[in-house]
Write a protein that binds this DNA or RNA. Structure first.
Lengths: 238, 238
DNA sequence: GTGAAAACTTGATCTGGGTCAAAGAAAAGA
DNA sequence: TCTTTTCTTTGACCCAGATCAAGTTTTCAC
């Protein structure tokens, strides 16, 4: 399998398999440190899928036997609480993966994964993944690292919900977006409804708090989704 | 090293090392499936420590190079939010472990660990642990399992904070305690202040909601810490 | 394009639960 | 034991933010 197969002549992934599979493998932190032969081996085991905006990739209660790696686009992971309300727990960007819980525990998905826009996803089955874990132990440490970072992130989110005001949570979120994109002009990666759900509030309150921040001269709204951060320092230490 | 070393003649761990180390190893899910020789090897690498109530085991910003396994007693893990408020993120019971984040990422602790009562803890150093991971690959799968369960738990907690009322969170917590103890008479493992922090509320509100539940005939207060659940079904589906 | 539906904003109102205060109960020293 | 300190409970009050409603803008299908 050549690495250069799809250069120029066709868009990535119409009914792609190995070609975009390899870009996927090269992109994710848990595999991208492997050498070429090893990556090829992993690529063999990968199946590539595409989804349209709104498609459900898996839902709570589904049995799971695959790891899902986002290649292009973004995927919204959400849960339904005991009282039936939906909450967005994270947004997967290219290179992020999910499905691990069920992968190691042989249990069922507890959350929903939905295409937030058109996405291409690489999947790898449990058996194959476990083979690779045995063959290339360095992958294990990568996965453990990613896991602990995710856990860290999740606990931080919990603490933020438990102790900070909506304004503070929003400000920190905006600052993080800027951090991640390396620019002071940011684009909200979700609509206000989903962002509200992620931050544990309502779309109305998001609108109001953004208006407050703009009134204070901390941000400038370019359009409903794009903002320029005018004073990141003051924003973070609100 | 005999497994029966300290039967009867002395309390576990005065200045114990291997003896209580072994009980520790035998107790935690990540090691307890090893055979005797392997457990002995792990036990060799373990150092046992005791702390008094209120002692800090580690604090945010400390470098970390050990895994901490609770042998007896309980340990409160908490974080300080950006705005300086403290939040209890979990309570470690015998068999639980912590310290993993820094273990795999070579970074610093982001949370605080404090003895909630007198505790004995077994520690194992990064290098030793990584040796065992290579020698006994079954440990890796156990750790991954534990991790994903913890992540699951943490995301559930996040969703609960984001979408449920205090009353509901409290009810679910009580039901979980009963579940875990296998009895309808439960004992709160923390004082109200810490429980409030864990559930993202205040001690006053905890008192009030418990009073509400009692008024509705769902629980009966035995003393400030102990309750009998009278109608678990109605409690969970409040 | 044009129309319909979805998303967003702003206003008015209401309430869960936080805050402050003070009394009562347990726990810990001494 | 008694005393001091720490927890817990209850009351009064208040506010951040939810909810409801109505208008506005954006998006998307045709």
């Amino acid at each position: 399998m050549s690495m250069m197969k799809n250069s120029g002549d066709r868009p990535i992934c119409q009914h792609c398999h190995q070609a975009s599979g390899h870009t996927c493998v090269a992109r994710v932190p848990i595999f991208n440190h492997l050498d070429n032969d090893q990556m090829d081996a992993v690529t063999e085991a990968i199946r590539s899928l595409t989804y349209q905006k709104g498609d459900i990739i898996y839902r709570a209660g589904d049995p799971s036997d695959s790891l899902y790696i986002v290649n292009t686009g973004s995927v919204r992971i959400y849960r339904i609480s005991d009282s039936g309300k939906e909450q967005v727990v994270r947004l997967l960007q290219p290179g992020d993966f999910t499905g691990e819980y069920a992968l190691f525990s042989e249990s069922l998905h507890e959350s929903y994964a939905e295409a937030n826009e058109p996405v291409t996803i690489c999947t790898i089955r449990r058996n194959n993944l476990q083979d690779f874990l045995m063959r290339y132990p360095s992958i294990v440490l990568k996965i453990l690292k990613t896991y602990s970072a995710r856990l860290e992130q999740s606990e931080k989110q919990t603490t933020s919900l438990a102790t900070e005001s909506v304004g503070k949570r929003l400000s920190l979120y905006l600052a993080e977006l800027a951090e991640a994109s390396g620019s002071d002009t940011i684009r909200l990666p979700m609509n206000k409804k989903d962002l509200a759900s992620f931050l544990g509030t309502t779309p109305e309150t998001i609108s109001r708090r953004l208006a407050d921040l703009e009134a204070k001269g901390l941000i400038h709204k370019l359009d409903p989704k794009r903002f320029r951060l005018l004073d990141k320092n003051r924003l973070e230490n609100l």
